[in-house]
Simulated scan of single mutants.
Amino acid sequence: MSQTLFESPAWPTVPVNGESAAYPVHRVFCVGRNYAAHAAEMGVEVDREAPFYFTKSALTILPSGETYPYPPGTKNFHYEMEFVVAIGKPVFRVSVDEAMQAVYGYAAGLDMTRRDLQLVAREKGRPWDLGKDVEGSSVIAALTKAADFGEIGDQKVQLTVDGELRQDARLSDLIWSVAELISDLSKFYHLAPGDLIYTGTPAGVGAVDPGAVIRGTIDGLDPVELTVGQPE
């Protein structure tokens, strides 16, 4: 292998409950508009013909419990609470019935968003990168193995800001199930270990200011936490 011109960062990793080794993150896939109430609050309709995706760099991964600066270029920084799926086996063009065999585990996550920039891009029909692919924006707690979590059902999904409840839903509210998402994504990508899928956020998203403490919970998973720091 040839030498590189500068040092390349290592893949970010996520701790796994019960394991000494961590899960390396290679790609981050995000699902848009996967809760009907959230789509409605954003003024858009749910596309029930197929799921809607965007991607984020793996370098946006941030461990739970960190303090991270309020990002540049925005005056409307939003939280989005998410159920995160970690892929553990290579799959390509997998059926819905077989898709769950590819799951390694689950985690609670936050998709932090420069909402003002996202909405400008949406109105102009441009990519969402400036709004979504934000440094430190893919916050994630420790993974719980799929077998330890059990079946995905009616688990509660909640988020608080400074102790005040802002998001309150259940995994049963997902429009596209985890199996359907994996099957659909595998039509377009060779999914592999290291791939994370942020499955969408419930209604109740909103802006936070520097100093805010965000805490998200999903029944059966470690909570995810973020303190929004002062801007640089």
Rank of each mutant, 00 (worst) to 15 (best):
Y35I: 00
V91D: 04
Q118E: 04
E135S: 13
D222G: 03
S8C: 09
G163H: 00
G220C: 01
E180R: 09
Q167W: 00
Y23E: 02
V25D: 01
V205H: 13
D173P: 08
Q3T: 14
A99D: 04
I87R: 00
V84M: 07
S137Y: 10
G229M: 07
G88S: 00
M100A: 13
E80H: 09
Q101A: 14
Q118R: 01
F83L: 15
P210I: 00
D222V: 11
A21K: 15
A58K: 14
L165K: 05
N76W: 04
I182F: 05
R33Q: 14
T55L: 15
P90W: 04
G73Y: 12
G43Q: 05
T217I: 00
C30K: 04
S177A: 02
R122P: 00
L130K: 14
G211I: 09
L174A: 10
Y106P: 08
W128H: 04
A192D: 12
L159F: 07
P9F: 01
E45W: 04
V208S: 12
N17Q: 13
G211V: 11
N76D: 15
V28H: 07
Y106M: 10
V94P: 11
F54D: 02
G18L: 09
I182V: 10
S57M: 12
Y53Q: 06
I152D: 03
L119I: 09
E135G: 13
R215G: 02
R93P: 01
G153D: 09
I152S: 07
D195M: 03
G229P: 13
L171Y: 10
Q101P: 00
V157C: 13
A102N: 03
A107W: 12
G136M: 02
V85F: 05
L171I: 04
G88A: 00
R122Q: 14
A212M: 07
V178A: 13
D133Y: 10
I197S: 06
L165A: 00
P71S: 08
L119C: 02
V161Y: 06
R33G: 03
R122G: 06
F29E: 01
V96I: 14
N76E: 15
R93Q: 12
M100T: 15
T67F: 04
F188N: 08
L196C: 11
T4A: 13
V14K: 06
P69K: 11
E123V: 03
L117K: 06
G131V: 01
A169V: 05
L171K: 13
I61T: 14
L117S: 05
Q167S: 02
Q118W: 05
L110G: 05
F54V: 01
V157N: 13
V157M: 15
L59M: 13
A107Q: 09
I152W: 08
H26L: 08
P210T: 06
P71N: 10
T144P: 10
R48F: 03
M81Q: 14
L159R: 04
G109I: 06
K89H: 09
V213Y: 14
G131H: 06
P193I: 05
